[in-house]
Structure formats: C-alpha cells, structure tokens
Amino acid sequence: MAVAKAEDGLNRSAARKSFGMGEIVKRYGIYLFLVLAILVTTAISPAFVSGSNITNMLMQLAPLAVVVIGQTFVILVRGLDLSVASVMATAAVIATSFSGQDGAALTVLFASIAMGAATGLANGLLVTKRNVSPFLATLATMIVLQGFRFAATQGAPSGNVPPIFRLLGSGKFYGVPYNLMVMLVMAAIFAVLLHKAAFGRRVFITGGNPVTARLVGISADRVIIACYMICGGLAALAGLLLSGFVGVVDNFVGRGFELDSIVAAVMGGVALSGGRGTIPGALAGAAILVVLSNAVVMIGMPVQLQIIVKGVVIIVAASLYVRTAR
C-alpha cells in the first residue's frame, strides 16, 4: 500500500516534471527565446528579415558555431577552454604562412588542425594528469600560443590566405554561404558523435560523475583529453573560416570568441557543472548571440549597447537554468 502510494507519487512527480513550465523552459526555452527575439526585432525593423541581412547573420554565425560545438564537448566534461581564440588566430597565421596558393590549402588545413589538436592535448594533459583547473590550464596555453604567434610574425602577419579559404569563408553557392555548409556538416558529425555514439555516452557519464565513470570502466582522463582535442581542432577550423571571411589576417583573429563561445553554450543549456547539454541547444545559443548583436544595430541603438545586451542576456539565461535545475 505504502509502496503503491510512493510509486504513485513518483509517477505524478515525473508527469509533472515532463509537462511543467520548468521543464518546458529548460528544454525549449532557448528556441522559444530565439524565435521571440527574431519576431520582436522584425516587428521593429522589417529589414531584419531581408535576404541580405539573414545571409549576413548566417555567415557571422558559422565560425562562432564551429567553436561552440567544441566548447560544448569541453564544458560537458566539467571543463572550459579559454585558448580557442588564440588557436583561431594561430590557425589564421598558419593560413598565410605558406605560398598563399590553393596548392598549399591541404598543408594549411592539416597543419592548423594538428596545431589545434596539440593545444587541446596540452590542455587535457594539464587538466587530467596535473589536476590543474581548466581555467588556468587553458589560460596558460592561450598566453603561450599568443607569444609564439607574436614572435613568429614579429607582431605583423603578412601574406595571403589561399583563395579556396576566401571562397569557403565568404563565398556563396546559390545564395547559401559555404561556411554555413561547413558548419552544418561539422554540427551533424559531432551531434551524432555526442548524442548517438558510444563516445558521447562516455562524455556524458564522465561529465555527470567522474567517479561513476571510473566504476563502469571508462577512462575519464582519456575522454577528457579527447574533448579538449576536439575543441582545439574545431577552433583551428573556425580560425581558417574566419580568416577567409575577414580576408585580412592579424594576430587577433577570433578575439572575443573564447568568451562568446562559453556564453553561447551556457545560454544553450550546457551546464558548467558538466554532464548536461546538447549540440542543437548550444547552436541555438550561438544564434541568439548573433541575432541580438545584429538586432541592436538594426533597431538603431548605439553599437555600445551590443555588449551591454550580451551581458544582461548571459546573466538572465544562466539564472533561468539554475532555477529550472533546482
């Protein structure tokens, strides 16, 4: 009798949980907010949904989204990667370090991704083997990479990005930006890896509870290192896309992406405490950042408000997730 009652209570609380406001906000809040932001901005400024503005926003979204995918993996295993912007800039500098012709494109691609993955390996080793906090480990590699980059370029990078990266970064195919296609392919691959493959389940278990992970025979250290390497590799790819988008390479390509990518992931429901979050959610978080930045300009507010709006949204979004998680 008591058991039946308890079960009944459990069922009811489960039912309430799946249909309650909290659960809806937690699961779909980010998408609802994205739609709302688009509708409100359109109402104020119809030019917001013009074809050229949408293309413009999508092209801005692509490099950020690629970084966010990697950042999501790292945050899921209770980490944080501050080195992504430095990896992006270093990849951009690598892109200009060869002949600048399409013949060098593959070399550039492999060299950049190898550099990103190596940075991720260093981050992962510091975090797992020396128990350094992710914040510090990635801060240190960020500074070291920056120093090497400055030393290699003597402060002023020169040379050309191979034309194929210019095309991938800023070209369009029947109106669809190439960089968006690259981003979608990456999102599909890594969403499957995270949400459908065994590796993804290891990531969630490791992030949810490292002790459990060890008990069920998962090498948490290896999973964590792999996540940092994925993040580094994707950041390098994003750096190449961004250098092709901007066209000019300087030592700070990607500045601000480290914080923006963390913010986008957190807004998209990826918990900093690890083990919770999805790739689609994180991508929606990135889309919101781009939409809000664009909306500020379209509505005719001073550009400085972009950063203020961003700050407010971070805090509000993060506090909403804390509320619903309780």
């Binding site: 203020i308 961003k310 805090i315």
Partner: peptide
C-alpha cells in the same frame, strides 16, 4: 540571489560595465 557561478555573473556584469564605459 540568482545562484549563478561567479564566473558567469562577473563575465556578464563585466560586459555591461564595459558597454557603459564605451557609452
């Protein structure tokens, strides 16, 4: 009050304050 990690809170307030400085 919000129970949010200080890292996120101060990242947010930092952005807001930087915006005010630029205004």
């Amino acid at each position: 009050v919000m129970g949010v990690h200080p890292l996120i809170v101060t990242l947010g307030t930092g952005a807001i304050i930087q915006g005010i400085a630029l205004l």
